[in-house]
Amino acid sequence: MRTALAGFALAVAFASSAEAAPPPVAWEVTGTSSAAVRVEPETEYRVERRFFEKQDHFVVKTGFSYLSRGDFYDNPGLSIDLSWYPLEFFAIDFVSSTIFFSQLNATATELRETFGLLPDSQKPYARITGGGRFAFAYGKVLIEELGAIVHLDASLGLHVGALVTDRTVNLGGDTGLAFQAAVFDRFVVWFDFSWFFSFEERSGQGTLASGPMGTVGVGLKL
């Protein structure tokens, strides 16, 4: 009450030239207001610590691969990749390689046994490439039945190198989409779908041979 009186007295004295009932002062004038003033923008995001952190880490991965390029061979393989992430969203794949255990497929085997013919395609032994990887997305998946959330990233890769065949070493490479899911702190589960291509000589002519290759495996974050 005392403050109110003193404040009133001051207001009367200080605003002697003002009108009898001065309008309330806008907050733009004094920076303050008797009413609530909203200043902060609406919240637009939620934030979460990245569970699957890769920056400054090496990731070594291994997995089962299968290359299908219409060359009358079945090309299962064992892949080994070694990547280093200087940035969270970019990796250098020092090595992205696959050892193929190629066999003539059933049709080619039958032709060989019947007519003694062999396909002019070369039999892949190994893929040895290097390149880069751009992680363009980070996501998470809820496994409802398990109540588990899986953090993963999606990346586009591009590799260039060589395809070692039963006849020679050919220039080759691949580009594809990969998903890596984090498991605990250091492990990843890995799925890669890429399109592999190589130049090789068939029937005396240079040919671009290509086909999809899928890989599923696990990795370790170092």
């Binding site: 919240t43 637009e44 995001y45 939620r46 934030v47 979460e48 610590r49 990245r50 569970f51 952190e53 920056q55 940035l87 969270e88 969203f89 980070y138 998470k140 809820l142 959330i149």
Partner: peptide
């Protein structure tokens, strides 16, 4: 880069905060 920003959705995910 260690944090991820998710757009506000109806779903509430554990580990996320506004």
């Amino acid at each position: 880069r260690r944090v991820v920003y998710w757009p506000i959705e109806e779903e509430r995910w554990p580990g996320e905060i506004l």
